[in-house]
């Protein structure tokens, strides 16, 4: 069971679509309400960043179902301008929302695994996983 449906982000509405699809996968995998809400929030943050800073991109999902672990992977990808100083944006209190815990550091907290690659030519790709416990 390894599928990769994606949601293309072009308008603000698409953020809702991505959340909805992500929540569906999370629910099917057996995540509880709290984790569903956290996953949906992480998706929102990633999708909104795409919408705001890269204009368009995709949010894809991958269900990880191995013998010893299950989880949901979110991949956010765009060909936007990239993030110049990653270590700066990963600092708490940096996001433009004035450091209310959201933004990329928030995504990292909401999920169990977080990886970001970004450069000005290829754009930004963020992978985040939540493990089912």
């Amino acid at each position: 069971m390894d599928f990769k449906p994606c949601v293309t982000i072009r308008k603000e509405w698409d953020i809702v679509g991505a959340r909805q699809l992500g929540r569906k996968h999370a629910k099917e995998l057996g995540f509880g309400t709290v984790d569903q809400a956290r996953i949906a929030t992480a998706i929102s943050e990633l999708a909104r960043n795409i919408y705001l800073y890269a204009r368009t991109g995709t949010i894809c999902f991958e269900v990880i179902d191995e013998l010893d672990k299950k989880g949901l992977k979110i991949v956010a990808k765009d060909n936007g301008p990239g993030i110049r100083d990653i270590s700066q944006v990963m600092q708490d209190g940096y996001s433009t929302s004035g450091g209310l815990g959201a933004g990329l550091p928030g995504v990292k907290r909401l999920m169990d695994f977080f990886e970001i690659r970004s450069d000005s030519e290829k754009g930004t790709e963020i992978e985040a996983i939540k493990w089912l416990r």
Partner: peptide, 24 residues
Amino acid sequence: LDFLLEAMISYGLALQEFQFLRQK
């Protein structure tokens, strides 16, 4: 109540950030 739970998510994040910043 599920709705309320969603509405609380950001407070949870703010709490974690607060604790991290306090440590820092």
